[in-house]
Deep mutational scan, measured.
Amino acid sequence: SEIVVAMYDFQATEAHDLRLERGQEYIILEKNDLHWWRARDKYGSEGYIPSNYVTGKK
């Protein structure tokens, strides 16, 4: 599975969105859409994140 790191904070506005915290790692579950990826955080929460807010883990 692909691990990404959040470059920016993202506040979830929709129920299906996942909040991003800058510097935290997330697991990508689905990339069915170019701009919104389904991800899981370290607490096990899942939701959609803006793909341009994250970068591949170095």
Rank of each mutant, 00 (worst) to 15 (best):
I49W: 02
A6M: 01
L34R: 12
G56E: 15
A15C: 14
G23S: 04
Q24Y: 07
S51T: 07
A6L: 03
S45P: 01
A12N: 08
N52F: 10
D17R: 15
V54E: 02
R22S: 09
E2F: 14
I28T: 00
R22E: 09
A6S: 05
I49K: 01
H35I: 13
A15L: 12
D9P: 05
R40H: 02
K42F: 07
Q11I: 14
R22M: 11
P50H: 05
K42G: 06
E21M: 08
L29K: 03
G23P: 00
R40E: 02
N32R: 12
Y26R: 00
L18T: 01
L18R: 01
L29Q: 02
I27T: 11
E46D: 05
E14I: 08
P50D: 05
K58P: 13
T55R: 12
P50N: 07
A6Q: 01
V5P: 01
S45T: 12
K31A: 08
A15T: 11
E2L: 13
P50G: 03
E25M: 10
D33G: 11
Y8N: 06
R22P: 05
A12G: 15
A39Y: 03
Y8W: 12
L34Y: 10
R38P: 00
Y8K: 11
Q24F: 09
W36M: 07
T55D: 07
D9Q: 04
K57L: 13
G47A: 02
N32K: 13
E14N: 15
E46V: 10
A6C: 06
Y26Q: 00
K31M: 08
G44W: 03
S1W: 15
M7L: 15
K57G: 10
S1D: 13
Y26V: 04
Y53N: 04
R40F: 04
V5R: 07
A12V: 08
K31N: 07
A12K: 09
E46M: 06
K31R: 10
Y53T: 03
E14A: 13
L29P: 00
E2H: 11
L18A: 00
Y8C: 15
R38K: 14
D33K: 07
L34D: 14
R38A: 03
T55W: 07
F10E: 00
K42L: 07
E25N: 06
E30A: 09
Y43R: 07
Q11A: 13
L29N: 00
N32C: 15
H35P: 04
S45D: 13
S51C: 12
E30S: 10
H16V: 08
S1P: 15
W36G: 05
E46R: 02
N52V: 09
G56N: 13
Y26D: 00
Y8E: 08
V4H: 04
Y8A: 09
Y48C: 14
A6R: 01
D33L: 08
Y48V: 07
T55L: 09
L18S: 00
P50Y: 05
G56Y: 14
E2G: 08
I28K: 00
P50E: 03
L34F: 10
W36F: 08
Y53R: 07
D33T: 10
H35A: 09
T13E: 10
Y53G: 06
K57D: 10
A12P: 15
T55E: 12
S1N: 13
Y48T: 07
E46F: 04
E21S: 08
K31F: 06
G56T: 15
H35T: 10
L18D: 00
N32V: 13
Y8R: 13
R40I: 07
I28G: 00
M7D: 06
F10N: 03
Y43M: 08
V5H: 04
I49E: 00
E30Y: 07
Y8S: 07
E30P: 01
R38S: 03
V54M: 04
A6I: 03
G47D: 00
E14T: 14
E25K: 08
A6G: 03
I49V: 09
A12M: 06
Y43E: 09
E21A: 06
R40P: 00
V4A: 06
I49Q: 01
E25P: 07
R19E: 09
D33V: 05
L29C: 05
W37M: 04
D9T: 06
N52Q: 13
I27C: 09
G23R: 03
I27R: 07
N32G: 12
R19D: 13
T55G: 06
Y53S: 07
Y48R: 12
N32F: 11
K58H: 14
E21T: 10
Y43H: 11
V4Q: 03
Q24P: 01
T13Y: 10
R40M: 10
Q11D: 14
E25F: 12
Y8V: 08
S45F: 12
Y48A: 04
I49T: 02
G23Y: 06
E2A: 09
L29H: 00
K58W: 13
E25R: 08
I27Y: 10
G47V: 03
R19P: 14
V54W: 01
E46G: 02
H35S: 09
Y48K: 07
W37C: 04
D17H: 15
D33M: 09
